[in-house]
């Protein structure tokens, strides 16, 4: 896949991890019908942490992060996000969703709205922000992801990399405390991957709590402070990136790393 090194120098000065818990997952299990997708997941994420989740296809990575903002329902165990227990209570779900931003593999921008409208929609309708203020915020974040001049175009007129950066800006407009990424670069051409990763690095440098499913190992080494390896619905191994890549413990991790890094 990609090289294990990023050429970007990452400023880690703001990336301090606090001891405040952002996400607490305990003995969480999920089934799709008969199929046991997630088995006894325990995971504590601290405010300011950048976690990269990797693992073979079908191992349940997407399912795990989608459970965190209730896009999927879990059947056993508990998930607490920022002190709010995730249950079937719609109020709690809404609260958690408004604090957790998510970026998808296929961007999922709203094709019938302009870039600016994509970014202002949720703040205006969910947060009840006045339109003008929402637009200012949106322009601020669009500048941050370096596409303010596309604000009045439609998503279909943008390249994949630009669309993904808009998707990130759209999430940021809700001022989330946590960002989830599900393979944000795997639908992109190689030359666009970097622009999206740079945007994500920028976010990390500002201290955003991030959970990122990705196979960009260079990104993991540069910004993650923990890498989690999943296989068959379980967290098999987790460690800080240097140790994870250079000294994997589990055989399955070793096999996966040798395949993905082409050693």
């Amino acid at each position: 896949m990609s090289e294990p090194h990023m050429d970007t120098a990452v400023d880690r000065s703001h990336m301090a991890v606090s001891d405040e818990v952002a996400i607490e997952i305990q003995a969480m299990n999920k089934w799709y019908g008969e199929f046991h997708v997630l088995k006894n997941i325990d995971l504590t994420v601290y405010q300011g942490e950048r976690i990269v989740i990797c693992g073979p296809s079908g191992s349940g990575k997407s399912t795990l992060i989608r459970c965190i903002n209730a896009l999927e329902e879990h059947q056993k165990g508990s998930i607490v996000v920022d002190g709010t227990l995730l249950s079937s209570d719609l109020k709690n779900i809404d609260k958690i969703r408004s604090e957790v931003g998510m970026c998808f593999q296929h961007f999922n921008l709203f094709p019938h709205l302009t870039i600016l409208e994509n970014c202002t929609l949720a703040p205006i309708w969910v947060r009840k922000t006045p339109k003008k203020e929402a637009e200012e915020t949106a322009m601020h974040f669009l500048e941050k992801v370096k596409i303010p001049d596309q604000a009045n175009k439609y998503p279909g007129q943008l390249s994949g990399g630009q669309q993904q950066r808009v998707a990130i800006a759209r999430s940021l407009c809700m001022k989330p405390r946590i960002m989830l990424f599900d393979e944000p670069t795997s639908a992109l051409d190689p030359e666009m991957i970097k622009e999206v990763l740079d945007t994500m690095i920028g976010l990390a440098e500002e201290g955003m709590t991030m959970l990122c499913v990705t196979h960009e190992m260079g990104f993991a080494q540069a910004v993650a402070n923990r890498v989690i390896f999943m296989d068959a619905g379980q967290i098999v191994e987790q460690n800080e990136p240097h140790a994870f890549f250079n000294n994997p413990q589990n055989d399955r991790t070793k096999l996966f790393l040798s395949q993905i890094l082409g050693h």
Partner: peptide, 21 residues
Amino acid sequence: KGQYEAADSLGLNYGLAQRLI
């Protein structure tokens, strides 16, 4: 399906998601 998910993940409730997205 991604449109529903994007709307959900932004915190739009059922009515808003249907109406706006």
